[in-house]
Design a binder for these strands. Structure first.
Lengths: 150, 150
DNA sequence: TCTAATTCTTGACTCAGTCCACAATCGGGC
DNA sequence: GCCCGATTGTGGACTGAGTCAAGAATTAGA
C-alpha cells in the first residue's frame, strides 16, 4: 500500500546489493539465509538451516549461524528470543514492531508498535543507561489454545 | 512507601507459610531457593544453585531447576530471559516492573512500570489472543560500558 | 507412628550454540 | 580474464543450559 510518504530505499531492493551496501561480501549462503528468514518469519536457526539446505543444496551449521549473526549485527535481520524458546529471526526490521507469543503453543505473531519510533517507550528511570530499544513481548493464549486449555 | 491502598498479604510473610498457602510441600531446598532468589535478584540457575549449596550444604541441580520451575508456575518468583542470556530469576513479583539490560556487560536492573497494572500495555491488535502480560526489556548501554565503548 | 504421595538425588542425555584449523570463495588490481 | 590476499565456509569436536528417568529420601495427613 504505497502512501504519500515513500520509503527511503527503492521499492524492490536487490538482496545482493543490500549486502554490498552494508560492506558485506556477497555469498550464496548469505543470500539463501536472507531468503529463508524472509520466507519464514520467526524461524529458528534450525529451520533456517533446513530452508537454506533445501534452497542451495548444502550449508554448514556454522555458516548459518555466522550469517544470522552478521546480518543481525548489520541490522538486516532481527533476532528475538522469547523465554524457553531458542532464538528466532525475522527480516522485518526498522519499524520497531513487537511480538505476541502464545504461552501454550509458542506461536509468534507480529504486532505493530502503536508509537512507531524507537525506542517507542520511555523508562520511568533510565539509571544512567543510554537506551536504544524497547523490546515488548505480549504473553497470552492464542485463539486455538484458548479453546483447548481450561 | 506505604500508600492508601495496602497490599493484600501481611507485611512479612513466612516463606514456609507462603509455600503451604500455594499448595506446595515445604522442603529445605525450596526454602533455600526462595532465599537465594531474593538475596540475589536476576541470578542465573547456576548462581542460585551455588547460593543454595552455600546455604544448606548440598543440592542437586535438578532440585534447583524443579524448585525454580514450580515457584515460577505458582507466581512466587519470576523468570526472565533476555536474548543471549540464560534464564534469570527474581522474587519481586506482582508489581509488573520491567528490565533494563546493558548490551555490553549484560547487567540487568529493575525499572518501575509507569502504568502499574498488568498487562500495562495494550497491543494495537491482539489477533484474538488473550493477553495477560506485557514484558518489556529496555536495551542500551550502562554508565560504565558507555565510557569504555566508543 | 505409619503410609502414600511428593520431592530429591544421581547420572545419562539432548539441544542450541561455539571454537578451531583448514579449504573454498570473493573481488579488487593487473 | 586471471591472480592473490582477505574474507567466508566446512567439518568435527566441544561447551553449557536444561531435561529425562529410576530409585531413594522426605513430607504431611490418617
Amino acid at each position: 500500500m504505497p502512501g504519500p510518504s515513500a520509503q527511503s530505499h527503492p521499492v524492490v531492493v536487490d538482496p545482493a546489493q543490500l549486502l554490498r551496501d552494508t560492506g558485506l561480501q556477497v555469498t550464496a549462503q548469505r543470500l539463501a539465509v536472507l531468503r529463508a528468514v524472509t520466507a519464514s518469519p520467526h524461524g529458528t536457526a534450525d529451520e533456517v538451516e533446513a530452508l537454506v539446505r533445501a534452497d542451495i543444496g548444502a550449508v554448514s551449521r556454522q555458516a548459518v549461524y555466522d550469517a544470522l549473526a552478521i546480518l543481525g549485527d548489520k541490522g538486516l535481520i532481527r533476532r528475538i528470543q522469547p523465554s524457553r524458546s531458542s532464538a528466532r529471526f525475522e527480516s522485518r526490521v526498522g519499524d520497531n514492531h513487537h511480538h505476541l507469543v502464545c504461552r501454550a503453543c509458542g506461536i509468534t505473531v507480529d504486532v505493530d508498535c502503536a508509537v512507531g519510533e524507537r525506542p517507542c517507550l520511555h523508562a520511568s528511570d533510565d539509571h544512567g543507561f543510554v537506551i536504544d530499544e524497547a523490546e515488548v513481548i505480549y504473553w497470552g493464549l492464542c485463539p486455538a489454545c484458548r479453546t483447548i486449555e481450561p
